[in-house]
Amino acid sequence: MALKPLIQSSLRQDYRITHPYHRLRLWLEGLRSKDKIVIYQMSKVGSTTIWKSLESLNLDIPIYHVHTLRHEQISRAIERDKANFPKLRFMYPETIHSEYLRSQLDQKNIMHPWSVITLVRDPVAKILSSFFQNLEREFLLGLDYRKKIKVEGDTKVLPEVIERFYQEKVDNSRRKHPFEWFNFELKDNLDFDIFAAPSIAGSNYYIYNTKLARILLLKLESLNDSYQSAFQEFLGLQNANLVQANVGLQKRYKSLYKSFLRNVDLPVDYLDEIYQTELVRHFYSESEIEQFYQRWTRS
């Protein structure tokens, strides 16, 4: 048997081989290049599109994609991947990337500032997209709404899904604002307080220079208009193209997702709690926020 198929087969069969293999692979990759492009952002803000777009350019720079660099979150993700490995037969790349980059921070092994790309998105759209991503993950683990949809149809299942969304996201007193991510992650791990920096309300992107990283902040809503000029200024890339990836409307629940977006009518007091904060006003202008309100209310 050829070596490559043998390795690939082993990686799908045994977590005790898969995990060390990927750790070694990233360590060797890091030795070959001082530069790093780190796509570091909260989930469901279009980061996979950025990741796949940069990978398609075949740059001679390692590219990492992570949602967290917090010790406890990484440990939890590793345990989750280990527990789910017998069913899924893979580890999420974000978990391996987070573990490797966290070790670089712990060892104070950053000789050259990272090139960090982070994104923001309408926080309610982000919350909705994260909710449906969880449904996708449940599907992989054997919990499938599609069986019920096939028997009862979207219109019967939709109220159940909307009720679940309200319980988990609207009426949940323990929920945190999505943009707290910048304090838990960028501030705590890269020593950069984005809310102490200039507001980008009314702008499409901004570049910050810090001790540990150069940071490019993009808005998902204006990404199509800004990415080429942003990539050229930040990375020196010209005529880069976006490769659309991980789009919610292309997934298993796309029909249910579309119905949800058409029918959900969120309470104004809930929207106020999300939008009437300095966390949001730091990134979005009054006119942008008003458009968000109009999207999620029917009255």
Results as ranks from 00 to 15, higher is better:
1 M>S: 15
4 K>W: 13
8 Q>S: 13
13 Q>P: 02
14 D>A: 08
14 D>M: 02
17 I>Q: 11
17 I>P: 14
23 R>L: 14
24 L>H: 05
25 R>K: 15
29 E>R: 12
31 L>Y: 03
33 S>V: 04
35 D>I: 05
36 K>E: 09
38 V>L: 15
39 I>K: 04
40 Y>A: 01
43 S>I: 00
43 S>K: 07
44 K>R: 15
47 S>V: 00
49 T>N: 11
50 I>Q: 10
52 K>F: 13
53 S>A: 07
53 S>D: 04
55 E>I: 00
57 L>Q: 13
58 N>V: 07
64 Y>Q: 05
69 L>G: 05
77 A>Q: 09
77 A>G: 01
78 I>S: 02
78 I>C: 07
79 E>M: 04
84 N>I: 00
85 F>S: 08
85 F>R: 06
86 P>Y: 02
88 L>N: 03
91 M>V: 09
91 M>G: 00
97 H>G: 06
102 R>H: 09
103 S>P: 00
107 Q>G: 06
107 Q>L: 15
108 K>C: 06
108 K>D: 13
115 S>E: 14
122 D>F: 02
123 P>K: 06
127 I>A: 05
130 S>V: 07
134 N>F: 13
134 N>C: 03
137 R>C: 00
143 L>A: 10
147 K>N: 14
149 I>A: 04
157 V>A: 04
159 P>D: 08
162 I>F: 04
163 E>V: 05
164 R>Y: 10
165 F>E: 07
167 Q>H: 13
167 Q>L: 13
178 P>Y: 01
182 F>A: 10
189 N>E: 10
194 I>R: 03
201 A>L: 05
206 Y>F: 06
214 R>P: 03
216 L>G: 03
217 L>Q: 06
225 D>T: 06
227 Y>H: 11
228 Q>G: 03
239 N>W: 06
244 Q>W: 10
244 Q>R: 11
248 G>W: 09
256 L>Y: 02
258 K>T: 11
258 K>A: 14
259 S>K: 15
271 L>S: 04
271 L>N: 05
279 L>T: 01
279 L>K: 14
285 S>W: 05
286 E>K: 12
289 I>G: 13
290 E>T: 11
292 F>N: 02
298 R>I: 09
299 S>D: 11
299 S>F: 09
